[in-house]
Design a protein around this nucleic acid. Structure first.
Length: 721
DNA sequence: AGCACGCCGACT
DNA sequence: GTCGGCGTGCTC
């Protein structure tokens, strides 16, 4: 008998591969490099077995790097769960979770102990900096609290150049993170209001696995609940895992945590870290050195040996779901981890996902509510729905919206106008023959970008010069149809001449640091009217903003995607949270062509419960999630027919069963994308267990399928269909 | 997914 | 004659 290691490799194959181990000195969880075909791959030992000598010729493990401690059985079990639940090969799950440096043959040597930068006298430092150097001043201001290089770079790309020179001048100091602890007093925790105190008490006294849904409007002080609960977790010597949706929110969350817990080691994990930073943070988490791990969805897969609490902030946010490769939901994995560890998990939101809301209603989650706004005197903004039918309007803006913006500007405040569409106009059309510009590679209109003088596809990046005349009939008078951020900016400039209008969308912030510069300009009061897409809805706090106008909201009401309405409600609630976070009451206006739609009545009630009740009863009637468990197969091919044909063979892999519905393959809503035609197949089950069983039973047959030229993927609990 | 092998079309 | 197209099949 010889000892063999069953190795999980980053290949799209479900099975493990066995390798001979010299001397048998290898543990489960060890990383290895093994010969595979004509190359060498990194893998992880997922199991050990005894193999009869000569029964099968095994290749031998090539090398065992020792720069990383052995991965724990608990962490491997987590990866196994993820692999099983999402029906993804274990080796690929591990490859997704493990930082890249641990998958290359070079041995990772952590650089110096990570340094924190700090300034004792920020006022003095600021006085030394030019008044106009806004980015430098922002970095300087952040140094009131110890900061890592990574978060400073997130604040301003060239931050570390300035840091080097300030260090040289002796204006600031660098302290090894490990030596940071002593002497720094924590910022005093504010006294919680009664609801906050009750929530903290409930979570802190929870025994074993208890999932909490922390339901509180924007500004009700959810963060304070997290902070005070984490304090109790740290006091018990446990680690806390905090997930936030947006990468932009990590640095600001990190500063808040650092200010409150100066003695704690805080590590952030997100995709903007470079390889070595990510590896270092991961190691600190894995070794139990990090007390708080803060990050985006990928942080949920970090190994945490003494985990005591998991927090998912803005749990409804779509960014917790990965949309390619391993299509996992970090929120769901967070709940699973808590259940495995037997610890509490807190899901926080002002507009919970309907899944979580249902779980709270059914008693699976415990509901904690924060009803009031935490900032004394801050009132909920006034909300108005403006009918655009037969309404007095100019340039597609309702007269009362124009008046409201004007009033805000006269008060010396800022106004924000949202439109969820970038570019000048969503299409360019010929008024004579009905031609309109469409993409060669996608079933989509080309968007007119006047600044760049181009037509662009927002799905594949295809670009075209603006044609001088209609390619079909030669008509020279092509007209932009509809409007996006750029045209809106132009409209507003015409309505408010002399006012500064600042557009913030993916186009205006593409350049590195452009987003920071724009936000800086907003805070400095250089902008009167902000025009932006969704990217402005989240997290940013604009103190002088009290008037928000939302355009083209209706598209969310008539979408083929059953979740669009839920997302629109969350978006509008969040947008409303942008207005009037301070003393003045804010004003939120929504333009619509369908004011009589029940959605708006519910929105006006300002009551998430009313909306959730109606939306959930609709979903119950229609057997939509969360009243069903879904899995979606997607396939793309040169020809729709071969994608459909492939999905038909997928369908045949399933065994019919009561409560299980295997749909028919259908063409995707947007048939063509990036030159490929797409189709999908929906598998629906009465519950998750049944869905999982059906998928597991279909797996062996699916392994035998040959996809040929077809690219396909399986999405369990798809976010969009 | 890679990567090799293998079998048919237009080129120095 | 061969360079190279991508179909098919395998990887302990």
């Amino acid at each position: 008998m010889i000892c063999a290691a069953q190795v999980a490799l980053d290949v799209p194959l479900t099975r493990l591969f066995s390798y001979a181990v010299d001397g048998g000195l290898l543990a489960v969880g060890e990383r290895v490099f093994v010969p595979f075909g004509h190359r060498v791959l990194s893998g992880v030992v997922a199991g050990l077995e005894e193999v009869a000598e000569g029964s099968m010729t095994l290749k031998a493990v090539q090398s065992v790097p020792r720069d990383l401690p052995c991965l724990s059985p608990e962490w491997l079990a987590l990866c196994r769960f993820v692999a099983d639940y999402y029906h993804h090969p274990l080796g690929q799950v591990i490859a997704t979770a493990l930082p890249a440096v641990f998958r290359i043959p070079e041995v990772f040597t952590p650089a110096q102990p990570p340094l924190l930068y700090r300034c004792d006298d920020v006022e003095a430092l600021l006085a030394r900096l030019a008044a106009r150097a806004t980015a430098q001043r922002r970095v300087a201001q952040a140094l009131a609290v110890p900061q890592t290089a990574a978060s400073l770079r997130a604040l301003a790309a060239p931050a570390m150049r300035w840091i080097a020179s300030w260090l040289e001048q002796g204006w600031i100091e660098a302290v090894p993170e490990t030596a940071m602890a002593k002497g720094k007093a924590a910022t005093n925790a504010p006294v919680p209001n009664p609801e906050q105190a009750r929530a903290v008490e409930a979570i802190a006294s929870a025994e074993g696995f208890v999932p909490f849904l922390l339901f509180g409007v924007t500004g009700s002080g959810k963060t304070e609940v997290y902070l005070q609960t984490i304090a109790t977790v740290l006091a018990r010597g446990k680690q806390a895992l905090v997930l936030v949706p947006e990468i932009n929110l990590t640095p600001q969350a990190e500063s808040a945590f650092r200010a409150r817990f100066p003695q704690a080691r805080i590590v952030s994990l997100h995709s903007r870290l470079n390889d070595s930073e990510r590896a270092q943070g991961w190691l600190a988490a894995m070794r139990g050195e990090a007390d708080i791990v803060l990050g985006t969805r990928l942080a949920v897969l970090a190994p945490l040996p003494r985990l005591g609490l998991v927090v998912v902030d803005e749990e409804h946010d779509a960014s917790f779901k990965q949309q390619d490769g391993l299509r996992y939901s970090a929120r769901d994995i967070a709940v699973y981890r808590a259940s495995q560890e037997g610890i509490p998990v807190v899901l926080g939101s002002a507009t919970p996902s309907l899944e979580s809301w249902r779980n709270a209603e059914s008693g699976r989650y415990r509901l904690l509510e924060l009803p009031a706004r935490a900032v004394p005197g801050a009132a909920l903004p006034e909300l108005r729905v403006l009918s655009m039918r037969r309404a007095p309007q100019r340039d597609g803006l309702h007269e009362s919206a124009i008046a409201a913006i004007g009033r805000a500007l006269d008060r010396g405040e800022q106004a924000l106008v949202f439109i969820n569409r970038r570019g000048y106009a969503p299409t360019l059309a010929c008024g004579e023959c009905g031609w309109s510009a469409s993409c060669r590679h996608c079933s989509a209109r080309l968007v007119l970008h006047l600044g760049a003088r181009r037509l662009r596809c927002h799905h594949c990046g295809y670009e075209l010069r603006i044609p001088p005349a209609c390619p079909d009939c030669g008509n020279q008078d092509l007209k932009p149809l509809g409007r996006g951020t750029q045209r809106l900016e132009e409209n507003l400039q015409a309505l408010f001449p002399g006012r500064n209008i600042l557009r913030i969308d993916r186009d205006s912030t593409r350049r590195k640091g452009a987003m920071d510069a724009a936000l800086e300009a907003v805070h400095a009061g250089e902008a009167d009217i902000l025009v932006g897409t969704q990217m402005l809805a989240k997290g940013h706090d604009f103190p002088r903003l009290n008037c928000v106008l939302v355009l083209e909201a209706d598209s969310g009401l008539f979408s083929v995607d059953y979740r669009a309405e839920e997302r629109l409600f969350a978006l509008l609630t969040q947008v409303a949270g942008r207005a009037g976070r301070r003393e003045q009451p804010g004003e939120v206006l929504v333009q619509t062509q369908f004011p009589e739609h029940p959605f708006y009545a519910q929105l006006l009630q300002r009551d998430y419960r009313v909306f959730a009740d109606r939306a959930l009863s609709e979903r119950r009637d229609l057997r939509l999630p969360p009243f069903a468990a879904w899995a979606l197969f997607r396939a793309e091919a040169q020809q729709l027919d071969s994608a459909l044909e492939f999905l038909r063979t997928v369908k045949q892999c399933f065994v019919p069963e009561p409560g299980l519905t295997i749909g028919d393959p259908v063409a995707a809503t947007m048939l063509k994308k990036s030159g490929l035609e797409r189709a999908q197949l929906l598998v629906s089950a009465e519950n998750r267990q049944l869905l999982q069983r059906a998928l597991a039973m279909a797996e062996p047959a699916m392994d035998r399928l040959k996809a040929g030229r077809i690219r396909w993927s399986l999405d369990v609990d798809p976010a969009e269909v």
